[in-house]
């Protein structure tokens, strides 16, 4: 009898109060939590702050002062110089060249890789054929292979195709290496769409492409956005493929940035360098801040397989 009553009280306790947790603002635990979070936030925010303030100072102030202190006098000269005058080798037309190169690489790469990945993912989820899963698993494992081992053979393939050193070659490479993660993303998304919908369309006589364009595409805008975020940031931030598969005239922004900042000739202009660095980081940062939760969803989808 006592045991039963004991159980019921434990049960009641397990249920717990249903309302929100009462908040005590200044408990020791809270102090620890917020204290740690704020200190860590400073570590994460510091580089962004340093980039911004350094890029707004003139060189005299950079040499004199503290890299963390805000500029005494704000100047946008370093930004102008980084954008339109900074030199890489003999070219002194600034980062703008790299920026436009990156844009010209980005647009076709993103469109092509998303198109291919969405169609592949759709096929893998709704039109399985013998062996399709095998290829898909190879594709997923391939995502872990270090790129370095495939660099040279791809040079040969691109040379054979006449694409070595061209924009087209780099676009193809981005499509190939974006495929595992994006195909996975689309496959998982399309698999979550009710089979009844697919079967109904089949009964009505719709084929592979009709179902894709008329039923699946209109339903899958969110996953296209997620995939686009992954691809845009990934391709914009790429350095290795840019440096291997293109030539100096069409180097993407990251490669040009590195060449500007790490060039050995001339006096180091730290403010211009930081302006250039910030300019290169701006595109992914803007995407990150605008997309918010979708960005998180994208990386979570990429990370947590299956």
């Amino acid at each position: 009898m006592t045991r039963v009553s004991h159980l019921t009280t434990a049960d009641a306790q397990l249920q717990g109060p249903k309302g929100p947790k009462p908040k005590r603002a200044f408990s020791g635990a809270n102090l620890f939590i917020y204290g740690t979070l704020i200190v860590m936030s400073l570590y994460y925010l510091l580089p962004l702050w340093v980039m911004i303030v350094t890029s707004l100072k003139d060189m005299a102030e950079v040499r004199m002062g503290n890299i963390f202190s805000p500029p005494a006098e704000i100047t946008f000269q370093p930004w102008v110089k980084a954008w339109s005058e900074a030199c890489t080798g003999i070219n002194c037309d600034g980062l703008s060249r790299g920026f436009w190169n990156s844009v010209r690489i980005l647009i076709p790469s993103v469109l092509l890789s998303i198109t291919v990945a969405s169609v592949s993912g759709y096929g893998l989820s709704m039109w399985k054929f013998k062996g399709s899963e095998v290829f898909f698993n190879i594709l997923l494992l391939g995502a872990f292979i270090p790129y370095q081992i495939m660099l040279y053979p791809i040079v040969i393939i691109l040379r054979e195709l006449g694409l070595m050193g061209s924009l087209g070659g780099l676009v193809l490479v981005h499509m190939i290496f974006g495929m595992p993660i994006n195909t996975l993303l689309f496959r998982n998304y399309f698999s979550s769409i009710p089979q009844e919908l697919f079967k109904a369309a089949r009964v009505d006589g719709a084929g592979f492409w009709a179902i894709f364009f008329k039923i699946m595409l209109p339903m899958s805008l969110p996953i296209f956005v997620v995939s686009m975020i992954i691809q845009v940031t990934g391709i914009w931030n790429d350095f290795l493929f840019g440096v291997v598969y293109t030539k100096p005239a069409i180097y993407p922004m990251t490669v040009q940035l590195n060449n500007i900042v790490n060039s050995v000739q001339g006096v180091k202009e730290y403010n211009v360098n930081m302006a250039a660095t910030l300019l290169t980081g701006l595109v992914p940062l803007v995407i990150y801040f605008i997309s918010g939760k979708l960005f998180v969803r994208g990386i979570a989808a990429g990370a947590v397989k299956g």
Binding site: M40, Y44, P47, M51, T54, T277, P284, L285, I287
Partner: peptide
């Protein structure tokens, strides 16, 4: 948002900022 934003950046950007700091 603060903890995750560096992940959006290129390694080149990260390397250059820390080179400066």
């Amino acid at each position: 948002t603060i903890f995750l934003y560096p992940f959006a950046l290129s390694f080149v950007v990260t390397g250059l900022v820390w080179q400066w700091i």
